[in-house]
Design a protein around this nucleic acid. Sequence first.
RNA 1: GCCCGGGUGGCGGAAUUGGUAUACGCGCAACACUUAAAAUGUUGUCCCUUACGGGAUGUGGGUUCGAUUCCCACCCCGGGCACCA
Length: 808
Amino acid sequence: MKKYDHKRIESKWQKEWEDSGLNKTKGASLKPKCYVLDMFPYPSGEGLHVGHPKGYIATDIYSRYKRMRGYNILHPMGWDAFGLPAENFAIKNKVHPRIAVEKNIARFKDQLSKIGFNYDWEREINTTDPEYYKWTQWIFLQMWKHGLAYQSFEPINWCPSCLTGLANEDLEDDRCDRCGSAVEQKPMRQWMLKITDYAERLLENLEDLDWPESIKESQRNWIGKSEGAEIDFQLKESEAKISVFTTRPDTLFGATYMVLAPEHELVDELKEQIENWDEVFQYTGIVKNKSDIERTAEGKNKTGVELKGVKAINPATKEEIPLFIADYVLAHYGTGAIMAVPASDSRDFGFAREFDLPIIEVIVGGDIKKEAFVGAGKLINSGKFDGMDSEEAKQKITEFVGGKMTTTYKLRDWVFSRQRYWGEPIPIIHCEKCGIVPVPESDLPVTLPEVESYEPTGTGESPLAAISEWVNVKCPKCGGPAKRETNTMPQWAGSSWYYLRYIDPKNDKALVDKEKEKYWSPVDMYVGGAEHATRHLIYARFWHKFLYDIGTVNYKEPFEHLQSVGLILAQDGRKMSKRYGNVVNPDEAVERFGADALRVYEMFMGPFDQSTVWSTDNMVGSYRFLEKVWLLISKISARGGTPPEDGQAASGGKNKKIELLTHKTIKKVGEDIESFDFNTAISSMMVLVNGMGKEEIAEDQFEILLKLLAPFAPHIAEELWHELGNKDSIHLEPWPKYDAEKIKEDTVTIAVQVNGRTRGTFEVAAGASEDEVKNQALSQENVKKWREGKETKKIIYIKGRLVNIVVS
RNA sequence: GCCCGGGUGGCGGAAUUGGUAUACGCGCAACACUUAAAAUGUUGUCCCUUACGGGAUGUGGGUUCGAUUCCCACCCCGGGCACCA
């Protein structure tokens, strides 16, 4: 037998599969379909590190397994290639981002191909391809038509020295991470998408998704639904009213002051009445220059300023209460104003302590001298509502003061524009006469022009704004002079619908053919990092629901089942990053131990969704395992060949121990792949291989092992399969079935405990009666010793497991 | 601060969801093969104890015949959100 030469067999089969078109997706058929998807990567300049393939290996195993189970498989791959890193690289090296991206993709593809993935590369997509982003732009236009895209002035992080906008990631303690200047909040004209219109549906439909509970929970928190009441507070000696949102209208009688967000429009309107305007103006100025991070990082010390000369009336008690502005109230949540109930809200409590404001207990249950009591309970100091339960009082008190019950969400509309070059141009034209005019669909895609420089313009505008021949166009409506929109879309855009394009990647008439979409959607298994829990996974759901509403797709949700991949950490326990110089490249590992060993190792490291620490040296265990399989083929015994067909015992001539073990392993591996417990699947195959190494094995038993191994280590399985004389690919074989009869053990080991401590074990026939087992247990030498001189109180019997004798 | 994970040998981890804790792998040790080393194979490997036995699943308590698993309180590590009214 030849040596296990991973290099030879891996390159041989990779080529063979490519030539035979093994991994080409078949069209719609009567077979059940299974769409298995990875979150597509950003092709960074550093190439792949060993963490990347972890998820891809899992989907590869899963899809190969499903194919053997008779499913029609769609398993594609592509590139999320717009975004800042490519643009920054372009600025630095004066290379067009397109060139850099092409190079990076070639590198990624080469690395991926060496790991033996079964992607159908005919369906490859690239978000920066005009034929692709034509449809990203098309979706934007549909949103515009349906009133979901609008313009607004939103603040961006602005570095006054670099004259450029910064992403949150580019900030360090509110300073520009390049030059260190303090970052300002500068309002810029932005395109927004009304995701808030979908808040309720995004929340509701989470219930039906088979996703990890933790990710669903993050989405719930991100959407942040809260039910409460909107109540108006009249200002004293004024027509003006302040509307507040509260989840606790039951505590209204305890509202002893009010707070407006410093940006609240009423502050300016009340200027004439406010006696300490200078102080107020100064405070507002300070807050304005604080970013959200700074504003919210102040912890327990509350700041604020009273609006002297202005009083509000508590609508329940009719008492006059003071009015403040404070940065702990945010303009963009609720109504931008709150009623403060220090006895029942800890932030209000902290503020009231700081400013020496009255604290009136309205819910019984806590000790308001020490801290706010935020729980529910019976009302007190609340007039005719005293003694009522807080739940009931919410409704009643709201009615009493003429308020209304409402719902609010934390979810905010999506800022959908970037002042950057390397993104999809927003297909809008600004006409002097007609205003905003969408680019006609027949003119899509609006492609990115070639530019000289990718440097930010210094005005905050996109580099596109400097290219007058691109910017200046005729208005499609009136033919007059007009200008193109120069903002581009954020990186999230292309990834919000890419899974649909794989279904029909070359269609130039539609985003996706509706019949094909009906067959392949939704994605049956989606695998990716948990860091996308709230952004990508919410944006994609939002777009999908919109496409459903306009009739482009057939189903309400894009991803039926989601699995999180845990990170692979570097040997030093930190994230792999160029910065720490701890990145491990898969090429070295593949070179040393082979793709199959890499695949097995990454799946064997630990639970799939947990992060684990990489160790190239530990890979040797997986390599040894494969080598043992390789050597097993020479052990196949001739007489174990084919089982006799004349009705004799099915395992005639075969080793019964191995037969039992084989069938147990079929069951275990199948179940574990379904639940993504790859580590225990591999461990059970190791047990089988170790067992086979010690006993005589039959050819069909060995074939079963190869089939179980095929999804995990496709090359070695294919090679040995052909070595046995088979002509077709092992990957098209049906998945082995286990025989429930064969899994039954003849004897079981029973543990005997005395008072819950194990004192011995014994073998007993699997069908033994309870009395038989108990008697045997009592007759054990060690048991006799422990029972001596004691009274037996009871005997607990757990079938097939243990007998516990309770004595005292 | 809140929410979600997690804490088991020297290390990565397993444990049929309340039933023999430490499967599988790495490492380590001894032996075999070898002039030697590597590779491979065999055996051993949670801790204390010569043994009998005892003690260990982050800590402390509880429920139970029996707890890694359930309940209560606390500590530590990782991730997410951040004064959300």
